[in-house]
Design a protein around this nucleic acid. Structure first.
Lengths: 120, 120
DNA sequence: CGGAATCCACGGCGATACTG
DNA sequence: CAGTATCGCCGTGGATTCCG
């Protein structure tokens, strides 16, 4: 049995708690963000897009996202193997907010570091 | 001594990374959410609103949020002591995001509960 | 190519006790 | 009332190796 994000009943009322558990990991936001931008990405492409994520974490995070029905994993039984990841409908519902967050983050970065504001 | 792979600064400037670091803690989202609802809350009120947070974590999280200029700490030098927390302007900019996240989370909870009744 | 498996370091976080 | 301080667990995530 897979241990996916479990939610203590007493806190469910918040919804924020729940949402953060599903997208609040260290990398989930970025993965969702890039999937939202590129529509569909292969494992290797994700790995290259997010070079600081180890294969373990990438796989693990993708599994959790898939488990939570936020992304779709499409596997081709070929040689060489090929796996494509894309957002599910539920995942797409998050994009406006992640985009909002992205803009907010960029704005904060520029505001706080007047210096080397290397563009996104 | 092994050199820990440094993260090129050019990578995670996507803003999402930054934003998640700011609000991605275990409790930050909920604290911001409740501050957004109640406008202003005292330390004890926050503690009662979020009973599962220890004083240590509450204080620590509030400090980080204050450090990040997301909330404002207003202290009254009285006896007994009194401290009020509220959202800063920057913090308020996040509310649309958190609010929608809240709605999304609630919706997911409902969908999930009527969905696969795989009792856990 | 796209993982899975293992080992391990770190720090987030909880529990508890104390303070101004 | 509103914190601080200390100890320590354990989950998160990193590095590395192996597999279909």
């Amino acid at each position: 049995m897979k241990k996916k994000s479990e939610i203590p009943e007493c806190i469910q009322k918040c919804g924020v708690e729940y949402a953060f558990k599903r997208i609040g990991g260290k990398y989930k936001g970025r993965i969702l963000w890039h999937l939202g931008l590129q529509k569909v990405l292969r494992y290797g492409e994700l790995s290259r897009t997010l070079p600081d994520i180890t294969t373990k974490m990438l796989t693990q995070t993708l599994r959790e996202l898939e488990d939570d029905k936020l992304i779709i994993r499409k596997m081709y039984h070929e040689v060489p193997p090929k796996v494509e990841y894309s957002l599910s409908d539920t995942g797409w519902e998050l994009m406006p907010f992640i985009e909002h967050l992205h803009n907010w983050g960029k704005k904060q970065l520029e505001t706080e570091s007047v210096g080397p504001a290397a563009g996104s």
